[in-house]
Design a protein around this nucleic acid. Structure first.
Lengths: 238, 238
DNA sequence: CGTGATTTGTACGTATGTATA
DNA sequence: TTATACATACGTACAAATCAC
């Protein structure tokens, strides 16, 4: 039953993490140290570490070292009343959100279609990154019709939540209209933004939110770290 | 702007695939041939091939060769009326489904909970693999209460679809009650079943179906090849 | 049915580049 | 600037799976 060298190393490290002998934030021994400890070549050590990084258990940082991730996988519920903060905060994590970029742009085609706007209409674009317990879990762009929500970004920042910002425009409630998601490999830049290994996949979520009468309010494209989240959907009527 | 050796090789092969110089089903040159052609070491070639396999563009088979995948990404719509065949067939693909295993077992805890059965109650378990255009896209297990659907597997096989089998028990319609999904790396066995490289991620979908009055009928756990599918959800009332 | 040739998988060695502290 | 730690890239050898004969 003796398997691969690198699989054995991976399994050993996995049990070390699960048993708590290696705990969140800990730095692993360096590659040369692991080579010595396991009595194998560097390739095998690196292959094991790479696999664990892909599973989200480790983060490998060039020049610094390799660290154990604190990854209680988040649960994100998608439904008609999808709300980011209400979703994550009850799980006992600290949610923080940071504005990366904002501005007015002419809507790309898929955005103008989703929002039922004329091609090239002005939209308010903003890019945010969301962290749970200071670990980045997702980042992405959202688009609002500039005519209807001219200063959306400012209000969102002042009020601290999307729900409140929308309400400030006199819209009491909004609903998730459609969602699509797929998995792919992260680009180098996405991996850096999410502070994850380049080989960890990401889940791309496209969403459209609408007011109760069905008018589209906003659309978004959010990139989630696949290792850090589980999505659930309830299809009950509510 | 000269990047990595292996990234350049990957990009070159990607454009070859996109431009049609390499088309679906084609066998790539062998590793030694690629080494000669690009004038690089085998490590670099393998790293490029591995990355492309993770993206689902190639399938690498030990002892046979490396082949270009025919992967028009499927779209799978999840909603209250989720139906596998009705979902895929309109996309112009040939859907085939093969029974891998079937039998009666005592329900594992999560199954008995999902189906509102007593712990250890008998359930009909079956494991199927689903292929689109003869490429495996998903496989998984489904569980039906044995008391209510004693010969479900036989009927499903005779009638050729789950919807028909359920109807044969006098249940005119059924609905998706809940869905949860997350991404993780495939085990070696899962990768083999899906004929994909071990490093390609999979998406695990847990679902519960119920009759119109809300009584759970079945639950399932299906493992999708992450590179071969996009999930969409409509949250309209329908 | 086995046997050898082909092809990918694993493993080891060594050297040099690059990011970080 | 120097030392440290991971990243890339070259090489070699043998193992394991597949296939044709």
């Amino acid at each position: 039953m003796t398997k691969n060298t690198w699989t054995q190393i991976k399994d050993q490290l996995t049990t070390d993490i699960r048993s708590g002998r290696l705990s969140a934030g800990d730095q692993l021994p360096t590659e040369p140290q692991l080579v010595a400890r396991f009595g194998v070549g560097r390739h095998s050590v690196r292959k094991a570490l790479e696999a664990l990084a892909r599973e989200g258990k480790l983060s490998i940082e060039q020049g610094r070292g390799t660290f154990v991730n604190a990854t209680p996988r988040l649960t994100y519920q998608i439904g008609k009343r999808t709300r980011l903060r209400r979703n994550l905060i009850p799980q006992g994590v600290t949610v923080s959100s940071q504005l990366l970029d904002a501005g007015r742009i002419h809507a790309p085609e898929n955005v103008s279609q989703s929002l039922h706007l004329d091609p090239g209409a002005l939209v308010v674009h903003s890019q945010r990154i969301t962290s749970a317990n200071d670990v980045p879990v997702a980042f992405g762009s959202s688009y609002y019709c500039a005519a209807r929500f001219p200063d959306f970004v400012e209000r969102r920042d002042t009020l601290g939540s999307t729900t409140e910002a929308i309400r400030s425009y006199g819209i009491a409630d909004y609903f998730r209209k459609s969602t699509s998601m797929h998995s792919r490999t992260a680009s180098a830049e996405e991996a850096r933004t999410l502070r994850q290994h380049p080989d960890v996949p990401v889940i791309v979520v496209h969403a459209v939110d609408a007011s109760p009468d069905g008018t589209p309010l906003s659309c978004s494209r959010v990139i989630w770290s696949a290792a850090r989240v589980t999505f659930t959907m309830e299809h009950s009527d509510d």
